[in-house]
């Protein structure tokens, strides 16, 4: 499999962001919730080793932004994983079974789809405690619906293929066919779709946190950093620009990677 150059560049950017998120905070003398009483709301520079400046409370923005990247990526990544397991399982079974079972299962998905999504998430965060785990649950619960649809369509296509028919004709039981022949052949489209899901979920998490429904202070996520930065936009633009740059870099890189994977795995391309 050969990736086009934008996708390869995206891989490099992602690698850098991930390495920074994991190792960057070790390089700084500050940690995420530590207050620097001498330097509140200072601009990026070398003063006090606050390379990317501090917020109103004197917390180091470099460390907090990277903490935010970690939390946002973890939530989006885990939620994607959940949507992968649920979506692939559900979609593959519906697609393979076909007929009435398929119709019933997919109508259920349609019903979930028609629920007002944000309202549903707000409800969940209100009922449950506002912790990263809740946000993750809220996002994951809805994120798998599209995956299930993608997988179901793909499975229906696979079902028509002769190698599946050959397995049926050989007397292979349906669960074995699903596990050994259908799921491995879904890997391509599923991988691509998952790569494109992560940035969407990062944005969703940021959106919820921005509204104050997601990750709560003093914990950092890209969303609540943006929310705070937005309040100081005129006096201290770096408070918005720093987390914003990390968000854009991560989301764009994932987008390009997904695009590249789709092209590379597309059987119609040579």
């Amino acid at each position: 499999m050969r990736l086009a150059w934008p996708a390869r560049a995206a891989l490099v950017v992602l690698g850098v962001v991930l390495a920074l998120a994991l190792l960057g905070p070790l390089a700084s003398p500050w940690h995420a919730e530590q207050l620097d009483w001498q330097r509140m709301a200072v601009a990026p520079g070398l003063d006090g080793a606050h390379w990317l400046g501090t917020d109103r409370l004197g917390r180091d923005l470099f460390v907090r932004s990277l903490e935010g990247v970690r939390v946002s990526l973890a939530i989006a990544g885990l939620a994607t994983l959940v949507s992968l397991v649920l979506g692939v399982g559900y979609g593959a079974i519906a697609g393979y079974a076909g007929g009435r079972v398929d119709a019933l299962m997919m109508r259920a998905v349609d019903v979930f789809y028609s629920l007002p999504y944000v309202f549903f998430v707000i409800l969940l965060t209100v009922v449950l405690e506002r912790r990263p785990a809740t946000v993750f649950l809220a996002i994951g619960a809805v994120g798998w619906l599209t995956m299930a649809r993608v997988v179901r369509g793909e499975t229906r296509r696979l079902r028509e293929r002769e190698f599946i028919e050959a397995a049926v004709a050989a007397g292979v039981p349906a669960p074995t066919i699903l596990w050994r022949h259908v799921v491995p052949n879904l890997a391509g489209p599923v991988l691509v779709y998952a790569t494109l899901t992560v940035p969407g979920l990062i944005l969703l998490e940021s959106f919820l946190s921005f509204l104050g429904l997601g990750v709560q202070e003093p914990a950092a996520s890209l969303g609540n950093l943006l929310a705070q930065g937005a309040q100081e936009m005129e006096a201290a633009p770096w408070m918005l620009l720093v987390p914003c740059s990390f968000l854009i870099a991560t989301v764009l890189a994932l987008g390009f990677l997904g695009e590249g994977l789709r092209d590379a795995l597309d059987p119609h391309e040579l």
Partner: peptide, 21 residues
Amino acid sequence: RRLRRRMAIIFQNPAASFDPR
């Protein structure tokens, strides 16, 4: 399924009748 042991099929397109993975 047990009965299918006693029968088999060969398709037109040999490449498509094998699981690519």
